[in-house]
Amino acid sequence: MTYRERLSPSPWMYLALALLIPASLLVFLPISVPAGIACAIVLFGGACLFVALSAPVVEVADGHLRAGRARIPLEFTAAPEAFRGAAATAARGVDLDARAWLCIRGGIDPVVRVQVTDPADPAPYWLISTRNPDLLVAALQAAHTLG
């Protein structure tokens, strides 16, 4: 079983980026109306494209867990746990180990904690945001039983 998810920004992020439009109009309209409109469109479009393309990917495939730019062989992982609501808030906050490796996004509430068993790795676990925590846990458990 494989799993793949792009941690795309929420629609609220794009709404916040829309604030670039009046800001750029305020700066460039006194110079030229067409330049102001063009700059507003280019800045907003470029920012939206950057935010969408730079969203990290969480993937379980080919014997590896990938979260963003980090990869770990599944043989060095164990005991995935899913957290939602208050438990997810605690996992990201008061219960967080400062040595943990994080791939968390503010607009995505659920997280999955994956224990790291590699003695050479200083991180005791990975904490990963996901919109589908049960599917990610199932994919990790299935990959362990197959491998």
Rank of each mutant, 00 (worst) to 15 (best):
V51Y: 10
A78Q: 07
V58F: 03
Y14T: 01
L135T: 12
I108Y: 06
L74I: 01
C39S: 07
V51T: 12
V27G: 02
A67E: 06
W126P: 00
R113T: 13
Y14F: 14
L29K: 01
R6A: 06
Y125T: 04
G45Q: 04
L140V: 07
A139M: 04
A138C: 04
G93V: 06
H144C: 01
I21L: 11
P22D: 00
P80Q: 11
D109K: 14
R113I: 12
M1T: 04
I108N: 05
A52T: 15
G36D: 09
G93Y: 04
A70F: 11
V112K: 07
L20F: 10
A120L: 14
G45K: 02
I41D: 06
I31C: 01
L127N: 05
R99L: 08
S10W: 00
V116L: 11
A78F: 04
A52H: 15
L26V: 02
I41S: 02
V112A: 10
A16E: 07
P122Y: 05
S8C: 01
C39V: 11
R71E: 12
L43F: 13
A38Y: 07
G68Y: 02
R105Q: 15
A88M: 09
I41G: 08
L140D: 09
A38D: 07
W101T: 09
A90G: 00
A98D: 14
C39N: 03
R99W: 00
A87Y: 00
D134Q: 13
L7I: 09
G63S: 08
G107T: 14
R84Y: 02
R99K: 13
R113N: 12
L25V: 08
L136C: 03
C48G: 11
L135K: 13
D97C: 11
P133W: 03
A47K: 03
I21E: 05
D62W: 02
R6T: 15
Q115I: 14
A123Y: 06
R66Q: 14
D121V: 01
A143H: 01
V42R: 02
Y3C: 05
M13D: 01
L29H: 04
S32N: 10
L29T: 14
A120Q: 13
G45R: 02
L135W: 03
A67I: 05
S8Y: 01
V33W: 08
F83V: 00
T2W: 00
V111I: 13
S24Q: 07
V27T: 12
